[in-house]
């Protein structure tokens, strides 16, 4: 069932000297209960796009449907009611330092007019859901970054929202804490069935939790689809950059390794293979060396877990004569394995 639909949505900010096209002709459907990743570099328009979901920004043209409601048609008071059904967490947590953790979590209920007793009871329950049951009387400044984001998540869930927007929620956290928070989001998605929209510039976050991804660049969605498809068959240049960065770690280090290999051995091709969970690297590699007069040297390989199985990446060098190398590349491309020729004489 479709929960959220962006229909040809554009947002243009009128600045003094020019019009800034923050979002351009975006069409996107997000299903109920899905974790949908929206990835892009900063300034790509991701935040503007989701801020139109709860009316913090209004689209210049196009329609945004949540369930049956068209967000632009809502009156101010209807919009406030609609906002209560959408929880939001932020990069910098945006907790109120003047309130205790418990009262921060209770704030959305306070705004909704829930009685004090009921809202504190609910807030305590939410704090235990995020593993902070003992910190209710502390102030946010006494917590670590990861704990603050847990409070942010508990607060976002206070009104039992149907949708949770995560706006770069892990971008200010260290890698370990990021994984904890991402696990918590996955857990919440499974237990409460909330639709989560994950905005990020880190492929890592999307890879860990999302089942679908949209890639944004300069206000447009340049590619979208299931996570595995995007990972194993990236088409757009930006998508490739994100995927490669995630698959291979430090690009610069890899590049200098490759440069060295190419320099010392300029006759042999280097290719990158990306496998998804159902395929496996080893048989392919061994079958190549059996079928063709080619020896294979592995330069780098790794496997990453996603929600829907593993994704492997392998960078290999084909050692043999030029014609045989060509045949191997053709063969791999026929196998429907994402093959990128990094270097070929």
């Amino acid at each position: 069932m479709i929960m959220i639909e962006f229909k040809n949505v554009s947002k243009i900010f009128k600045l003094k000297d020019k019009n800034l096209k923050a979002v351009q002709n975006v069409n996107l459907k997000i299903n109920n209960g899905e974790i949908y990743g929206i990835i892009g570099y900063s300034g790509a328009g991701k935040s503007t796009l989701v801020r139109m979901l709860n009316g913090l920004e209004t689209p210049t043209t196009g329609q945004i449907l949540i369930g049956k409601h068209n967000i632009s048609d809502l009156s101010t008071s209807q919009l406030r009611i609609q906002r209560k059904k959408i929880g939001m967490i932020f990069q910098h947590f945006n907790l109120l330092w003047s309130r205790t953790v418990l009262k921060n979590v209770a704030l959305p209920l306070e705004i909704a007019g829930v009685s004090k007793e009921k809202r504190l009871q609910k807030a305590r329950k939410l704090l235990s859901l995020v593993g902070l049951e003992n910190r209710g009387n502390d102030y946010p400044s006494e917590l670590s970054g990861g704990q603050k984001q847990r409070v942010g998540i508990a607060r976002a869930l206070a009104n039992d929202p149907k949708i949770l927007i995560s706006d770069e929620a892990t971008s200010a956290l260290d890698p370990e804490t990021t994984d904890d928070i991402l696990d918590l989001l996955t857990d919440i998605n499974k237990r409460l069935g909330i639709t989560i929209i994950l905005i990020t510039h880190e492929m890592h976050a999307v890879r860990k939790v999302a089942s679908k991804v949209a890639v944004m660049k300069a206000g447009r969605i340049v590619e979208k689809g299931s996570l595995i498809d995007i990972f194993t068959h990236p088409k757009n240049e930006v998508t490739k950059q994100f995927v490669n960065k995630e698959a291979n770690g430090d690009e610069k280090e890899l590049q200098s390794t490759l440069d060295n290999v190419i320099h010392s051995d300029p006759k042999n091709a280097i290719i990158r293979l990306i496998f998804n969970g159902s395929q496996s690297g080893d048989p392919v590699v061994s079958s190549i060396s059996k079928k063709y007069q080619i020896q294979i040297s592995i330069i780098q390989g790794n496997v990453k877990q996603t929600r829907n199985g593993a994704i492997g990446s392998l960078i290999i060098q084909l050692i043999g004569n030029h014609d045989e190398q060509e045949k191997v590349i053709e063969y791999l491309q026929k196998l429907q394995i994402e093959t990128e020729v990094i270097y070929h004489e």
């Binding site: 913090l56 939001m88 109120l96 705004i111």
Partner: peptide
């Protein structure tokens, strides 16, 4: 912090809240 104001508005707060 304008982020905090935005967060509270996203909860459905009105101007007085």
């Amino acid at each position: 912090d304008s982020g905090v104001i935005e967060a509270v508005r996203s909860m459905g707060a009105n101007r007085w809240d």
